[in-house]
Design a binder for these strands. Sequence first.
DNA 1: TTGTAGTTTATAATGGTTCTAAACAGCTGT
DNA 2: ACAGCTGTTTAGAACCATTATAAACTACAA
Lengths: 132, 132
Amino acid sequence: MKYIEKLRNSGLRPTKQRLQICEILFDREKTFHFTINELDQKIKNKIHNKISLATIYNTVHAFEKKGYLKQIPINSNQTYFDTNVTDHHHFYNLEDGKLIDLENSDVGPINIKKKINGKKIKSIEILVKLED
Amino acid sequence: MKYIEKLRNSGLRPTKQRLQICEILFDREKTFHFTINELDQKIKNKIHNKISLATIYNTVHAFEKKGYLKQIPINSNQTYFDTNVTDHHHFYNLEDGKLIDLENSDVGPINIKKKINGKKIKSIEILVKLED
DNA sequence: TTGTAGTTTATAATGGTTCTAAACAGCTGT
DNA sequence: ACAGCTGTTTAGAACCATTATAAACTACAA
Ligand SMILES: [Mn+2]
Ligand SMILES: [Mn+2]
Ligand SMILES: [Zn+2]
Ligand SMILES: [Zn+2]
């Protein structure tokens, strides 16, 4: 399997559950934006054995900590995660709650003129809300 | 009281509780960013009668609906609200979870080049995360 | 003053997330 | 191959911000 090495190199044991979750999360062309519940549904549809919800939470947080996933700041009752861990921006479709990536080339240069003493910028994220 | 008219004009009855919450929220020079719990604490410190937590939630949501407050998209276990309802951006201090306004003059023009068919942009918000 | 609709309140319910602790499984050394 | 260790999975409980409930209360118009 292609994820065994990746997990081992991160200090994570390549368990059956983690490998299956890796396939669902990372075997895709495009960025995957998801909530834990959406991931849980995808797992139920695509694999035959059961993975407990606790394991899904554990795995997502482990992957986040290792830098394979990141959270997206959205006001929702559920936390959104992103398989695209590069610095990038989002469209947020208010109708269906779905996210679309904006690559850096899709956005002109951002100039933050204000400075805060003793602080440095860690990230700059734009959220563009869309309506009909 | 200066808020009685404002509330009546919005179709909200100017109750004692709402007027007291108005004073805490809006009698200030600068933008107030807060969670429900922080507001609850401020209320406990500044007024003598009790306002139930349910009323605080009800009032904040009523004010949000009327456009006197808005939510800020932040990943936190609590929802953040903002008394500055204009379109503006934020610094987010990761150390203490505090928000600082960025006026539009603090940020250069933002150019979103990508278009989504049949959708129009409702808002553009930048979140600048700060670290030491 | 009286009626009505809007509001407040204590309390329960909801639901996403985290915790617990016992069973289980991957890995290292023998 | 086996033992032993430690990391992982799991069901279920706990947590806690938020929302729902429904009864008491209140603003206000008639
Ligand atoms: Mn996390
Ligand atoms: Mn709301
Ligand atoms: Zn993304
Ligand atoms: Zn603000």
